[in-house]
Amino acid sequence: MFEARLVQGNLLKKVVDAVKDLVTDANFDCSSSGFTLQAMDNSHVSLVSLSLRSDGFEHFRCDRNMSMGMSLGNLAKILKCAGNDDIVTMKAADDGDTVTFMFESPKEDRVSDFELKLMDIDSEHLGIPDTDYAATVTLPAAEYQRICRDLSSIGDTVVISATKDGVKFSSSGDVGTANITVRQNTTADKKEEQVSIDLKEPVALTFALRYLNSFAKATPLASHVSLSMARDLPVMVDYQISDMGHLRFYLAPKIED
């Protein structure tokens, strides 16, 4: 059987809210090492990769590797019924066709359980190669969200270019053009405002803003987000989930025809 108890239950809610608009149905894979999900969006332009390590759960038991297909919309509906401070426990039998979510209030005065029907989902797993990225910028997650939102009002695509001067986000459209540059700032008073840039070589890539905007729905998960880029390769947008794992998005670039 599978059983996992997460004291910070709202973390699961944040994860599902971050991906449910991008991915409709997905398989959650459970093994003794943890709880993972890999899924492409409907147009196969981006890839979501979630990893929650077993040691990040208060209790984790998985006797047999299993894949649980869920409608993320339905899962979000169920998780919405959990209190913000509730402890969430997931349970599934090896051969069952449901997964149960149990919500316990911190004061232990309210317990509820919701059963979600599992579904058969055909999904192919993609191998994500280890990449030597040319540039990685780590910036406040709220700042990334703001950049994507602001540029979306100007154009549909963004050119992200990393040079020694900083990382520039440029967009253009009917309205005009916009450029936003973030520079390294590791001495900001508050740690949550710090920006760090790791540049091995200059790189510039073009991406569809609607996907980058969608990834920003993960903002509540982490104080910072990292964007890693290499020439002619998908960008990796990485939200670290403290003490547990990560939620990563990969977006294929637009390339000159």
């Binding site: 492409m40 147009s43 196969h44 332009v45 981006s46 890839l47 192919e124 797993h125 993609l126 191998g127 994500i128 190669p129 695509t157 073009t206 569809a208 390769l233 998908p234 990969y250 977006l251 294929a252 670039p253 637009k254 390339i255 000159e256 025809d257």
Partner: peptide
């Protein structure tokens, strides 16, 4: 013009 690549053209199926 720019052409949108698909993610599976970069990451092969396992």
């Amino acid at each position: 013009g720019m052409k949108q690549k698909s993610i599976s053209s970069f990451f092969a199926a396992k």
